[in-house]
Amino acid sequence: MPFSSLGLSPILLKTLADQSFTDPTPIQELVIPAILSKKDVLAIAKTGSGKTASYVLPLLMNLEGSIGLKNRHANVLVLVPTRELAEQVKDVFKTFSEPLAQSVKIIAVYGGVSINPQMMALQGINILVATPGRLLELVSLNSVHLSGIETLVLDEADKMLNLGFKDELNKIIALLPERRQNILLSATLTDDLEQIHQVLLHEPLVIKIAVEEASLDLIRQVAYVVSAEKKGPFLRYLINHHEMKQVLVFASSVQQVDAVVNKLRKNKIDAKAIHSKKSQGARTEALAHFKSGKLRVLVSTDLMARGIDINFLPFVINYELPRSPKDYIHRIGRTGRADVFGDAISLVSESELHHFEVIQKKMGRQVSLITKNLDEI
């Protein structure tokens, strides 16, 4: 099914072609027509399935005629869990809105940066992408008003609830007009999300795109049994031995991320950290350099992972295992995309072996487990 059959305007179809988008993904085929017809939508699909474009395209079309009715009254509100995702969503909106005849103002607001420039930028806002905490701050300062919201989007809704944003979401929803379109997008359907779905959505179209086994088939997985104190030297050995030019490394805490980066840089391996304690400028720069191939190693916590979306990332390394098997699958899913094979390597200490067995069982895959004699390296 081509994009031209989904009801999109000729100018958006041309922009899709210019951006080398050929055929819609399964979720785009279902979500785009539903949003165009102003239906509520609950869409469950894995990260990287095309969820963002599935709502950006039809919402831009639906905005026609309602732009600029009241100052500081946004038409569309998109709530996201992290700064990185806010910037990513804003960029997608800008890419597709630039060729439109009618000017659309899109702003992303989030904490960790000065609030004053954001307050000034909200003049004439049409589409607001926001993290919940910063949005409530701006509302309290009368910098933006939510009474004119026509469509509410909760993107990565499961992550927002996991990060404890439930109270903030409830406060925001209470400020919105009762009559509006609601769109929930999530990688998983949790109990908390099911409760919000029951309260928030009115006769929604429910779309669940199962994670295809083929996506894991593109990921070559291997694990090494390595003591905790030897993980650093072994990580450096892997990067150098395999001549890795672009590798994403996951650690479980901010402190461990910084420690890994410091050790890599001391050993002349170009690396940067991305986590919640870094300034927004540092995070944006590190991610941009990594995506462009200028940075060899990016070390991240799970919190930052959802803003890292690279089609041809060759290597992912789990320096430590995540707590959740779902987070493990999400981590390794950064590679093996766009029909290109990728490698996922896990460093597993003796104390992590039982947890790694649980991960493999939940994933339904056995991973080769190799005991490496580090004295031979």
Rank of each mutant, 00 (worst) to 15 (best):
L13H: 11
L13E: 13
T15P: 00
L16H: 05
Q19T: 11
S20Q: 14
S20L: 10
S20A: 12
S20E: 15
T22H: 13
D23N: 15
T25L: 09
P26Y: 08
P26G: 08
P26N: 08
Q28F: 11
Q28E: 08
I32A: 09
A34M: 07
I35Y: 12
L36W: 11
S37N: 14
K38P: 00
D40Q: 06
D40K: 05
D40F: 03
L42W: 03
L42D: 01
A43D: 00
G50P: 06
K51H: 07
K51F: 04
A53R: 05
S54W: 08
Y55G: 10
L57M: 04
P58W: 04
L59P: 03
M61W: 00
N62A: 12
S66E: 12
I67N: 09
G68D: 11
L69T: 12
N71V: 13
N71K: 14
R72H: 12
A74P: 13
V76H: 06
L77A: 04
V78I: 15
V78G: 06
R83A: 06
R83E: 09
L85R: 06
L85Q: 08
Q88R: 05
D91A: 11
V92N: 11
V92T: 12
K94I: 11
S97N: 14
E98C: 06
P99S: 14
P99A: 14
L100V: 13
A101F: 14
A101M: 14
S103P: 13
V104S: 07
I106W: 00
I107F: 00
I107S: 04
I107P: 01
G112S: 14
N116E: 14
Q123E: 15
G124Y: 05
I127A: 01
L128A: 07
P132E: 06
L136V: 09
V139D: 03
V139K: 08
S140L: 08
S140M: 09
S140C: 07
N142A: 11
S143L: 01
S143R: 02
V144Y: 00
H145F: 06
